[in-house]
């Protein structure tokens, strides 16, 4: 078994053992936590319906293909899978939107294709940048964000580029 195959079972066992050792009622806590995320999941559904349908229409109409074809020459020369361009565009703005686009990349290209792997690394290693900034600065009424946005965007762009490189080297 490889390291990555062991990671999730290992984390699960460590948490359970730690819980038992500390005398926590692990079953009651588990149920409470699962219930909390069930609510999160149900609250996610209307957003997902809106965005999955919109992204689905974008793909079905051929708009997605027109857009990626228009840029594919440049992107291919840079070694960037053109199918991942819509993901890179929506990722900083909307988490559910990114999920919808990611799912569409997996279903069209397959999870083990270059685009599928790169999209997986991109969605796993980047965040909903603008939403995060809005939530935190909004909470304390910060209006002058100074160099927050440029620094965060430099991070995002680095993430998208490095995703493709790490996939090329490691996978």
């Amino acid at each position: 078994m490889s390291f990555t195959e062991l990671l999730i079972p290992a984390v699960t066992v460590i948490v359970i053992l730690w819980g038992l050792k500390s005398g926590t009622d692990i079953f009651a806590e588990f149920i409470a936590g699962a219930k909390e995320n069930l609510t999160v999941c149900m609250e996610l559904l209307p957003t997902l319906i809106a965005l999955i349908t919109a992204v689905g229409m974008f793909t079905a109409s051929g708009a997605s293909e027109l857009m990626t074809n228009a840029c594919s020459g440049t992107l291919m020369r840079l070694g960037f899978p053109p199918e991942c361009l819509p993901l890179a565009l929506i990722r900083p703005v909307s988490g559910s939107g990114a999920l919808a686009v990611y799912e569409s990349v997996l279903s069209h290209c397959g999870p083990d294709s270059l685009a599928g792997k790169a999209a997986s690394v991109m969605i796993g290693s980047t965040e909903t940048t603008f939403y995060t900034i809005a939530v935190y600065y909004g909470a304390v009424g910060i209006k002058k964000t100074r160099h927050t946005v440029p620094a965060a965007i430099i991070g995002d762009i680095t993430g998208f580029v490095v995703s493709v490189i790490t996939v090329g080297i490691l996978l």
């Binding site: 948490v15 936590g33 699962a34 069930l38 997902l48």
Partner: peptide
């Protein structure tokens, strides 16, 4: 498909949420 996806992700999200709740209340 959106409903299917949500139900599909729901299981894992709930399991992970439950497990991490244990991590939280046990002081981990």
């Amino acid at each position: 498909r959106a409903v299917e996806l949500c139900i599909y992700l729901c299981g894992g999200m709930c399991f992970w949420g439950g497990l991490m709740r244990i991590a939280e209340s046990s002081g981990l």
